[in-house]
Nucleic acid binder design. Structure first.
Lengths: 152, 152
DNA sequence: GACAAATAGTTGTAAAGGCAACTATACTGG
DNA sequence: CCAGTATAGTTGCCTTTACAACTATTTGTC
């Protein structure tokens, strides 16, 4: 009844790969999250929102775009943005062309906070990404992830 | 209209890669989690535990090994295992050589549940992994993730 | 135009997980 | 052997998030 670990851990190469993806991600997210929290007092989810906003044209996105970008439920995103607003890092703005929609835009404080966090993030990445993968490998990895991510 | 990864103002290649990793993982985990939940009534975290147990010699692991393998806190793991025990999928066994430690072992029901879940998982993987990456690409990806994961 | 369906966002409720404090057991140096 | 420290696991308390139900608005159809 027991399965030999060396013979067939759980059998399938794809199962292994998926498990590896989950584990790698969980570890990196945990490490970075703790570091951001400790050095900038910024939860990882907040950092992700700010990063998405900076990427966006005019530094603003609608609620549903944020939810999609950071892969949260819409309800969860509402609460998350509530907290960012309360912290003064973003503001909600109404959308003239669609009165259901709400824009979320960065404040100056949010912008500054993101700069600070990016500093920590980059030093983290130097340790944990660049220290382990060459530039070529990183490019390859990014390409594979893009494929994986396509229209998931 | 919003997100322009190519013209990204926060533009470090490593930041991009990290974001991609987070996003890919979140999407895949979300999709698989929903599928497992819908078809087997099995939360993803439970699945991960059962998978780790099957991989282990004698189908059992100590609490801290589980916590480490699935990247949870020890407190969180205690609660998670509580739920699995209540569902009859695993049992706790005392460790004769160290009275602080506790083994978690699969029950027959847990073993059967894992078989069922692996069926769903594999069909999911065929759609979402094999459909997007060739066998060679999957091997490459696995290799890169192992490097990334090393002693995180 | 009006009604049905789709879409954007919020809220109630509940579950999952983290951290820190705690208990119990094991190890280590004197 | 004893004190001090390290380790295994559990528990209290809290935050975060998901899901489903709900409101408000828009769009598509006739």
């Amino acid at each position: 009844m027991t399965i030999q670990p060396s013979a067939c851990p759980s059998g399938d190469e794809k199962v292994e790969l998926f498990g590896l993806l989950l584990e790698t991600n969980a570890r990196l997210a945990r490490t970075l999250g703790l570091e951001l929290e400790a050095e900038c007092d910024l939860p990882l989810a907040w950092f992700e929102v700010l990063l998405q906003l900076r990427r966006a044209s005019e530094s603003r996105l609608k609620m549903n775009q944020i939810a999609d970008a950071i892969v949260h439920s819409t309800g969860g995103t509402t609460r998350l943005i509530d907290r960012l607003v309360e912290a003064g890092l973003v503001v909600r703005e109404s959308c003239p062309s669609d009165r259901r929609a709400i824009y979320v835009a960065m404040t100056n404080a949010g912008d500054a906070k993101l700069d600070e966090a990016l500093g920590v993030h980059l030093s983290y990445l130097d340790k944990n990404l660049a220290g382990r993968l060459s530039a070529t490998e990183r490019t390859t990895l990014a390409g594979l992830l893009v494929k994986l991510n396509a229209s998931a």
